[in-house]
Amino acid sequence: MPPDRWIGGLILALMLWAMPGSGSAAEPPAPSGVLSKSSLTAEDLLAALGPPFEAILDRVDPDLALISRDGRSFVLADLWRLSRSHEGGDVREDGWARMAHALISTHLGQRFWVYPTSDAPDRYGRIRAHILFETPEGNSLWINAALLKQGLARAFPLDLPPDITRALYEAEDSARADHRTLWSAPAFAPMKAHDLMNDGSIGGGDFAIVTGRVFQATKVGGTLYLNFTADWRQDFTIRLNWPVRRQWPVAERTAAFWRGKELEVRGVMEPMNGLMITPISPAQIKILASPLADEEQDHGSKKSPAQMAPGILETKAGSKTD
Rank of each mutant, 00 (worst) to 15 (best):
M1K: 12
P2C: 00
P3I: 14
I11M: 11
L12E: 15
A13D: 09
A13E: 07
W17D: 13
A26S: 13
E27L: 07
E27I: 02
P31Q: 03
V34T: 08
S39G: 07
A47H: 12
G50F: 06
P52F: 04
L57I: 00
V60M: 08
D61F: 06
S68M: 00
L76S: 05
R81K: 11
H86F: 15
G88H: 11
D90Y: 03
V91R: 14
R92D: 13
D94F: 07
G95S: 13
G95M: 11
R98Q: 14
A100P: 09
H101Y: 08
L103E: 10
L108E: 01
G109C: 03
Q110S: 04
V114F: 07
T117W: 01
S118I: 10
A129Q: 03
A129K: 04
E134H: 03
E134C: 01
P136F: 10
P136W: 09
P136D: 12
L141E: 14
W142A: 03
N144V: 07
L147I: 01
G151S: 06
A153V: 06
L158D: 07
D163E: 13
I164P: 04
I164E: 01
T165S: 12
R166Q: 10
A167K: 10
A171N: 12
D173V: 06
D173M: 10
S174E: 14
D178Q: 15
D178A: 14
R180L: 15
P186L: 09
P186W: 08
F188V: 01
H194D: 08
N198Q: 08
N198M: 05
D199F: 06
G200I: 02
G203V: 12
G205A: 07
F207V: 04
A208Y: 00
I209V: 10
Q216F: 01
Y225V: 07
L226W: 06
D231I: 08
I238R: 01
N241E: 15
R245E: 02
R246P: 08
Q247V: 02
P249W: 04
T254M: 02
A255E: 12
R259P: 00
E264Q: 15
V265F: 07
R266G: 09
G267D: 02
G267E: 01
G274L: 01
L275C: 13
I280E: 15
S281K: 05
S281C: 05
Q284N: 04
K286Y: 05
L288S: 05
P291W: 07
D294F: 13
E296V: 13
S301N: 07
K302R: 15
S304A: 12
A306Q: 08
L313M: 10
E314L: 12
G318F: 03
G318T: 05
D322F: 06
